[in-house]
Design a protein around this nucleic acid. Structure first.
Length: 146
DNA sequence: CGTGTTTGACCCATC
DNA sequence: GGATGGGTCAAACAC
């Protein structure tokens, strides 16, 4: 809490372009436009945080070997335009970015996630939230019985 | 038809 | 011991 909103400065809404193409899906799919990071995310839930009066969307990496998760938080402003969207990354990617433009710079040096994980950790930290609880252990927390 | 999104319900952790 | 919040999965719907 406190001093938020101005923290988000990486979101760069790029409007226009393919109005018909995008509109087709924008029509009813995800009325909210989220900034792409270069990874494929699948929305698996949405909740409203009455504490801050903001919406929270949950995204998961589509990759099978990717346990990375993304969390998007935005105010409940009118539809269409969003003031600021807070993106929080959780987990670490084990695959390369599928981005369109060449990423150039960074990554791909020390094999695997070491460096990558660090990068994401930093982002998560930036959010400056509180609580440091991290559950999800035991390979299979869910397993009633076969 | 398949993909992707959406909403609700369910579960777990925490207070 | 219960209640709440938060997080996740599943099903259904739409295109």
């Amino acid at each position: 809490m406190s001093t938020d909103a101005s923290t988000t400065s990486m979101d760069q809404c790029e409007e226009g372009l393919n109005r018909e193409d995008e509109q087709d899906m924008e029509r009813r799919s995800h009325r909210l436009k989220l900034p792409e990071d270069g990874y494929e995310w699948k929305k698996y839930g949405q909740k409203f945080n009455k504490n801050i009066g903001k919406f929270r969307s949950y995204f998961k990496c589509q990759r099978e070997n990717c346990m990375a998760k993304k969390r998007a938080e935005w105010s409940s402003r009118s539809d269409g335009e969003l003031g600021e969207i807070r993106i929080v990354y959780d987990g670490v990617h084990s695959h390369d970015q599928h981005s369109s433009s060449s990423s150039a710079s960074n990554s791909q040096g020390t094999s695997t996630s070491s460096s990558n994980a660090n990068q994401y950790n930093l982002l998560t930290q930036v959010q400056g939230e509180d609580h440091h609880h991290r559950h999800q252990s035991t390979s299979t927390p869910r397993t009633p019985h076969a």
